[in-house]
């Protein structure tokens, strides 16, 4: 069929323009991400496996048990998650994918951090201003429905191959729930509590930080959980543009038609996903 409208062409022109004229910016971002990911990787890999496992297990235990950490009910509540962390991480270690698991974790943490850094303020903005909300919502819909692979093309264009385009594509893909759930959480704070803030002469900032954000926190934490899981689901796709970690092993498995490799690395991702999910959920449910 004949092409009458050529939107893709215009997008291409726009991307080319951005690439040419803002290259210093892309370089700076590239360097920053690469540096952060590399230094986090070397930090984590310098910690002995057993110590790292203990730290994760301790975080899991504390997240789940909370105030009851030092008595029987705490042990009862948190023993499941702690045991799972031990078994899961030992399994990954024994399968020989510890380094890749750490790389994946770093990628997820850095992407999540950036996604939250952008997503929470945008979410606040969209909760506070209906105009902002009207603009932001369709953009989020677009971001979520556009196939994730598409983001890889401009990401390579701006950052060449490596961890940076992987992180950027992951951030774009996992940003929407951070925005949506922050916005939802703030909008759902009871009107009367906010009105009480106004009635006692609170400024907009006081209302945001003393009332809205604390009360929206469980919803925001549910958003954090979603961001992490979406980021994890992106690691395989991100490996197509050169991101390292378990995702790249899965990708190798596909290319080499290697069932064993594919299954083991896939299992590793599932274990990481469950651990990250349970820990963040436990933090979210604490209140």
């Amino acid at each position: 069929m004949e092409k009458i409208i050529n939107i893709g062409k215009y997008i291409e022109i726009a991307i080319n323009f951005l690439e040419e004229h803002l290259s210093f910016l892309w370089n700076a971002i590239d360097n920053l991400i690469t540096w952060t990911v590399d230094s986090m990787n070397s930090l984590f890999l310098n910690i002995p496996f057993w110590l790292f496992m203990l730290i994760v297990a301790a975080i899991g235990y504390w997240a789940k048990s909370g105030k009851t950490a030092f008595n029987k009910s705490g042990i009862k509540k948190a023993s499941g998650i702690t045991l799972f962390i031990f078994i899961g991480l030992v399994l990954i270690y024994l399968m020989g994918y510890w380094k890749e698991a750490i790389e994946t974790t770093t990628l997820v943490l850095v992407s999540t951090f950036i996604a939250l850094l952008l997503g929470i303020p945008i979410g606040i903005l969209s909760a506070k201003s209906s105009l902002a909300n009207a603009i932001i919502r369709p953009v989020l819909d677009f971001m979520q429905t556009m196939p994730a692979f598409v983001y890889l093309i401009p990401a390579i264009f701006f950052f060449s191959v490596g961890n940076s385009p992987g992180v950027i594509a992951t951030v774009i893909f996992s940003l929407p729930p951070a925005v949506r759930l922050t916005s939802l959480g703030i909008k759902n704070v009871a009107g009367e509590v906010v009105e009480a803030g106004h009635a006692y002469g609170a400024t907009e900032n006081q209302i945001l930080f003393k009332i809205q954000l604390p009360l929206a926190m469980p919803t925001i934490l549910a958003g954090v959980n979603q961001v992490i899981l979406l980021a994890l689901s992106m690691v395989v796709i991100a490996s197509m543009v050169g991101a390292r970690g378990l995702g790249s092993i899965v990708y190798q498995g596909i290319q080499q038609n290697n069932i064993a490799k594919g299954f083991e690395s896939g299992l590793g991702i599932v274990i990481l996903a469950i651990i990250l999910d349970r820990i963040t959920q436990a933090f979210g449910n604490k209140k």
């Binding site: 009105e195 009480a196 003393k210 009332i211 604390p214």
Partner: peptide, 10 residues
């Protein structure tokens, strides 16, 4: 100061 129907406590 104001007092609210549904208390409006934090």
């Amino acid at each position: 100061s104001m007092v609210f129907q549904n208390f409006g406590l934090l």
